[in-house]
Simulated assay, not measured.
Amino acid sequence: MTRLLILLLLFASSFHGRTQPTDNLPSQLTLAATDWCPFSCSPSGSPQRPGIISEYLSQILKQHNITLNIKFLPWSRALVEANNGTVDGLLTVVPEETGHLLMPKTATANYTDCFFVRPDENWRYRDSASLKQVKIAYVQDYGYNEPLHSHIHDPGNAARLFEVSGADPSRRMVRLVQAGRADALIEEQLVAAWAQKQATKKLYQPTQLKPAGCLNSNPFYLAISPDLPASKALIQLFDRVLQQPESLKLLEKITQSYIAD
């Protein structure tokens, strides 16, 4: 009887280890991000509100005794630092941007990229053919959905594209469209709405751009460097936790707080 009890305990211990692969997790995690408010907001731009995803993942990781640190960089540099192991990974990313980084199978949230034009512009996005009718401002190294991804990477469309890089690319794209140097810009719809709302609050000159159609909504993820010793355990943790109903309710609650702000 004693021998049987010991075997049962050993089996239970082994099973527990396979279903809860969160041993040896780090006490801190540093992820690179770009200023993509309201998803991720740099302290210089929004010191009181760190962003939907920043708050969301910080609260989730805190439940597992992990402190989330976010390093804000221009997007191209964030990709480089994550891929060379200078930081532990990326706060938000789509599969086209990951390089050799590891992503959970479970998405963090969804995003929708939309086109914006001047009020007097009649163009509206309908399909891939319509993209050839205007000059589009976009952010360097961002992963866009189809058909825009293929449009950007087609050398034959270079004259109809305006690539923006560096800090605060959203505001630069707005200025390009306002000045007529580009006909349309592509931006995530919540990001565009947030920028317009903050400009109005701070009495900035309103952007005066109107929506002109959207690409399909798609998921985005976080990414972890494979050089991090606990990378596989972290990926397993996120795959398990991000799909839990309580996590989805938390994300919705935080998102609504930003929309209502």
Rank of each mutant, 00 (worst) to 15 (best):
F39Y: 10
Q140F: 12
Y125L: 02
H100M: 06
L209D: 00
S217E: 09
Y258Q: 06
Q196F: 00
T19A: 13
V117M: 05
Y125G: 00
P47V: 06
I186E: 06
L237E: 04
P50W: 02
I52W: 05
F39I: 02
G156C: 07
E187F: 11
H100W: 12
S130L: 10
R49K: 14
T19R: 13
T200W: 00
T200N: 01
T2I: 12
Q178R: 15
P219H: 13
K249N: 03
A212S: 15
R175E: 12
A184N: 10
P169Q: 08
T255Y: 03
Q59K: 12
L9H: 15
A195S: 09
I53C: 07
A159W: 06
T207S: 12
H149Y: 03
E188V: 14
E246R: 06
A192E: 08
L101F: 14
S14V: 14
I254A: 05
L8D: 13
S27Q: 11
A184S: 13
V134C: 07
T106M: 14
K135H: 06
Q133Y: 03
Y221Q: 01
H64L: 08
S130Y: 14
T92L: 10
L73Y: 01
A233V: 05
A137N: 06
S44Y: 04
W36G: 00
L101V: 09
R18N: 14
K62G: 12
T92G: 11
Q178D: 13
L57F: 08
T255C: 02
V87F: 03
E187M: 11
D23T: 15
A32H: 04
D88A: 10
I6V: 15
A82D: 02
P38I: 01
R124H: 14
I235E: 01
I254W: 03
F39Q: 04
G51L: 05
N216E: 15
S257W: 02
A107G: 11
Y204H: 14
N84P: 03
S58Q: 11
L209F: 10
L25I: 11
N65W: 11
K105Y: 08
D239R: 03
F220H: 07
A158Q: 10
C37W: 01
I53L: 13
P26I: 08
L185G: 07
T207E: 12
D113I: 00
Y125I: 00
L5A: 14
G45Y: 03
T98R: 15
Q48N: 15
R181K: 13
L68W: 05
L68R: 07
R124T: 15
L29N: 02
S217Y: 12
G51F: 00
A184K: 07
A260F: 11
K249G: 01
N145L: 10
